[in-house]
């Protein structure tokens, strides 16, 4: 009996370990595949042309900068809209709203997370884009700004939900202590609860941004996909890296320079999200260390 249990234990342990390792293995395999398909592009186009300002595959113009610019503008725009709104909503739900309202609000926010991005993209195209064109008096409503707002709407539920969980996990004694010292409710929230939940809130923000930078469908429908760099780019059409891959991969001839170039864009995208993740986890790590120091 004991022997059987031990065998069972070993098998389970092995399975769990395999699952853990496989995640790393998958990421590594994906990266190797990307490198294999994308690196030839570096030899097929000169570095100067990769730094060009024009992306037009028909004439073999593969300037990556406009795509990078498009992705950055749209993602930063989305972050600017979604972070303050998301954290504030989480604070309201966790700290201010009465119990019954909280029980209504949280599920609704989570339903928002389940909306397929195509549906949001459709709404954005038919409702948001014309609205932006008429209210801001722009030549067209299909702009980076439209994409930013849509992405913010997509990142919001993630940010709210994860941040609210983190705020909720802050021990009640912290708040009681602050209130007992004579802090107002606002001071308690801003100086005690939010800093205590900092690492969780940061995770929430990073997950939200992660969703924004990788999103494709909705962005492709509303940003106009014109590869251009301009200082007022937020109010004009932009072409993101994800939209470029999605739009062009379907028809490209396998093994051609254009095909390799699209994979090079994918490598770039992979590296960017990798970087965002590393920065996020190093920030979390530092925050945790400081908290430990303060407690000891």
């Amino acid at each position: 009996m004991a022997k059987r249990r031990k065998l069972f234990e070993t098998i389970i342990q092995f399975l769990i370990r395999a699952c853990g390792y496989s995640t790393v293995l998958f990421v590594a395999a994906i990266f190797i595949f990307l490198l294999q398909a994308g690196l030839p592009a570096l030899f097929e186009a000169s570095p100067a042309s990769l730094l060009g300002l024009r992306w037009y595959p028909i004439e073999s113009l593969y300037g990556l900068l406009p795509l990078l610019f498009g992705s950055l503008v749209v993602t930063i725009g989305a972050a600017v809209f979604s972070i303050p709104l998301g954290v504030a909503t989480a604070l309201f739900i966790a700290e201010v709203a009465p119990r019954w309202m909280r029980e209504v609000l949280k599920p609704f926010v989570e339903i928002l997370a389940g909306l397929p991005s195509v549906v949001l993209g459709f709404l954005g195209f038919l409702v948001l884009a014309p609205l932006i064109r008429t209210t801001l008096n722009l030549p067209t409503g299909l702009t980076a700004l439209t994409g930013s707002i849509l992405l913010a709407a997509m990142a919001l539920p993630t940010i709210v939900s994860v941040a609210e969980d983190a705020l909720d996990a802050v021990p009640k004694s912290y708040r009681d202590g602050a209130l007992a010292l004579g802090a107002t409710k606002w001071q308690t929230i801003w100086r005690v609860t939010l800093p205590a939940a900092r690492s969780g809130v940061l995770t929430a923000v990073m997950l939200g941004i992660g969703r924004a930078i990788g999103e494709t469908m909705a962005v492709m429908m509303v940003t106009g996909n014109a590869p251009q760099i301009r200082w007022d780019g937020l109010f004009f059409p932009a072409r993101t890296m994800t939209a470029t891959i999605a739009a062009e991969m379907g028809e490209v001839a396998g093994g051609s320079a254009h095909y390799h170039m699209l994979f090079l864009v994918a490598i770039l995208l992979f590296l960017i999200s990798f970087l965002v993740n590393i920065i996020a986890s190093s920030m979390l790590f530092r925050a945790k260390k400081r908290a430990e120091r303060m407690l000891s």
């Binding site: 037009y56 028909i58 106009g224 996909n225 014109a226 590869p227 251009q228 072409r239």
Partner: peptide, 10 residues
């Protein structure tokens, strides 16, 4: 070629 600000819709 097309002007760079041409909207390319899918």
């Amino acid at each position: 070629i097309f002007s760079a600000d041409t909207l390319l819709l899918p």
